[in-house]
Design a protein around this nucleic acid. Sequence first.
RNA 1: GCGCCCGUAGCUCAGCUGGAUAGAGCGACUGACUACGAAUCAGUAGGUCGGGAGUUCGAAUCUCUCCGGGCGCACCA
Length: 679
Amino acid sequence: MVLELEKRLGRSLRAILKQKYDLEVANIPLETPPDLRLGEIATPIAFELARKLRKAPKIIAQEIVTALGEVEGFAHFEVAGAGYINARLDRAAAVRMMGWVQSGLPHAKGHALVEHTSINPNKAAHIGHLRNAILGDTFVRLLRAAGYKVDVQNYIDNTGVQVADVVVGFLHLERKSPVEIRTLIADSTKLAAGPEGYDAAIDYYCWDLYARTSQWYEQGTADEKAARKKLRLDTLHLIERGGNETAEIADLISIAVLRRHLETMLRLGIEYDFLPRESEILHLKFWDAAFEKLKKSGVLYFENEGKNKGCWVMTRPGAPTQPIQDDNGLKGTDDDAKVIVRSNGTVTYVGKDIAYHLWKFGLLGRDFGYKRFFQYPDHECWISAEAGEKEHPHFGDASAIYNVIDSRQSDPQANVVQALRGMGYAEQADHYTHFSYEMVALTPRCAIELGYEVVEEDRGRAYIEVSGRKGFGVKADDLIDKLIAATRAEVDARQTGGTGENADAERHKIARQIAIGALRYFMLKYTRNSVIAFDFKDALSFEGETGPYIQYAVVRIRNIFRKGGTSPEAALAELAELEPGRIAQFLSGEENDDIWALWLRAGRSSMVLEQCISGSEPAYLAKHAFQLAQEFANFYHRHHILTEEDPARKTLLLATAAITLRELVASLALLGIESPEAM
RNA sequence: GCGCCCGUAGCUCAGCUGGAUAGAGCGACUGACUACGAAUCAGUAGGUCGGGAGUUCGAAUCUCUCCGGGCGCACCA
């Protein structure tokens, strides 16, 4: 609602500036006044024009207000302060505008591809991965709500060193045979379903084994260390090549761990459409196709001199585009260039990534094979395969891509974009978004609480980085379990869900909804480039700026309708029957500002959604939902709806609750948070 | 050395493309349950927006510089 009105006002203002002063202003700055008493929308445009027109801002503002006359949806305009133009909305009209079911189907905006999670399939997911997956999943929901067709991908590096390390651990540290490994995986799946829970699961097993193997590389004599490092490299090469027993073991492990990751993420309502794997990128020769294009476009050149002699390299972003020349005009070498093909002929990570991203945009001329892998309640998740199923959906060919990858990888990401641009794909490069975010770290207190040794040097720090290699971190499933236990205790204390036959199932469901709400909100309330210093005290909090606070507002509204024997739909239908004059009466005056504030906030949702997408920042919506809930709590305490004697006013109050409910539930859903029936 | 990010209340963080008296949560202290359930609300205290200079009618926001912290700068992935 506010978005539409702002656009309308912007158009009117632009027309006036053109007609009156012959000025073309592309973007009229519009803002929210600090106080409702100053109106709902304001513009400081007169300040900007003061110099150009050589007139006082106040006079310009007055001229514009006079020229504006009447604009539909607005009550009136006024000049305030040193030259602000403040707009006051026609409150009754705004309310009636929102009361109708307006949203409709958003128009098609294009095909977006979001890649997130992408955990190395060699250990359990931890809180850092949760932030990635929750950010990515939420952004997917936002894009879909805005009208994009979205494919969700989870890239699986099943042939990298991390998987190799676990394979080395199984084969050489534990000296397990392939048969034993197979049995272990099968058994762990059964055990994890029983009382032992996730502690018995394969990803937990690998968590410890990976840490032990990493340590093992560093132990022993110099000769032993060298031998172990060689073992690691040989294992990696066997896995990359494929078609051997080591590669089969690696595949077994990575598939089993991957399934666990999908299960963990499903607990949070996170689903994927496609799982492209590195093994297929290698075996289907994506690189060969990319290499030809890179050479042809001149992005890659062969280095004959300097430290990168014998490599195919590319110029880094920001570096001079032409090879460096010395004082004598002789072409020198760019030692700072990025190596893409090593002197031994193998491709680096960035090289493979360029090929993969050409595929994402449909520019590679090759495709994956596709196999069914994981069944969700309402759709299938596919995985890449060398020889896939005949019938399969098609992925790739996106017009915009979003890579949810932590900020430490911004350099390689920039290299890939640079390569695309260099190949002439400027349009694609412009729609390539590195959706970067900062890591989740542990506070020293939290680390000590978990029983980790914290060296003196780290105790004074604000946070300590999580490390899979060291086995240092909080596992995702452990955290979820802990949250559910805590919410269940609260639910039991309140006897939410009653004491009847189905009480246990009901309470479990509610506890789960609240726990997930708390976790997702916790990961979304911080803006992307803020490091989260994780602490159980904050993550297990259900009060204040948290998911449960917002869910509680929803439950309260539902209780009102339940006790009042009516429904939100009925309340809005009744509102439509009310004459505008009465609505205006109930919304005018400062004593009713809190009611109007709720409508206004609720009416900002689509604007917030747009901001979230243009800024790639889900935190704006998290904040918005909280503020809406907060304003409702305020309203709730000030007005007792069900005992309101004036039926017309009661209708308006009920409609206010109905609109708030609609927007809260919708906002929570976009954040991936369910709205419980009771709590 | 080069690049990116950060520094706002005791703590954790918002502050949108520069705009009107800098906000929230937590913590502290006062109060409010016979109510549409207090996972709530009202109130109080608490900030030279890291320091300095500049641009501007106007700077937490833009530029420069300094200080302090984090992360990247592989023929690793």
